[in-house]
Amino acid sequence: MTQSAFDATGFLRFDLANGSIISREGEQLALIPIDLLDALEPGEQTRQRSVAFGKTHGKHFAEIIAGLTEPPGVEALADHLAGLTAVFGLGRSAVEIRGNAILFRLTSGRELSAGVVTLLTGFLAGFMSEIEPETTFEILHMQVDDDGDLFWAGNPKAIKQVKDWLADGVKPMEALWLLSEEGR
């Protein structure tokens, strides 16, 4: 197998007898209005559970790419994340590469609440950390524009540096450029 496109077949199983919805990864899920998700508290507990949520799916993705006959490109990651965000009803995601930075753009057509942003940053951090075992990516919600929300994955030191620049008024993309210049 040389491709690793996301396959939604069998992703959800409706157990009507027991009244439960089980994901392919064995998670118990619930279909609720997204307005309720907006009410999620953006605290540490939400972040930790979201990281665990992402790890579950990152581990599954790592198993998929480990079975490929050729080293996958970044398209494999883009495909899988797009499928996951779609089946979870969170939006349409894409991967953007800016220099050495990797970013994730989510287009949902709605304004993300602070709780949902915490969920997504935690999910992406957990997911990314399972792909490369020696990395512990952190995720920063960089900006919101007409094309959706932009999340950047970086190491903890870089994330802290960019946060400081943003607090000083530096624009998000300029902060990433500064970061790349510092590393030269």
């Binding site: 496109a5 939604a8 883009a78 495909d79 797009a82 499928g83 779609a86 991967v95 800016r98 753009r105």
Partner: peptide, 11 residues
């Protein structure tokens, strides 16, 4: 049932 996620090369 196959999703395709775009990869945008910005530079």
């Amino acid at each position: 049932p196959v999703a395709s996620g775009p990869v945008a090369q910005m530079d």
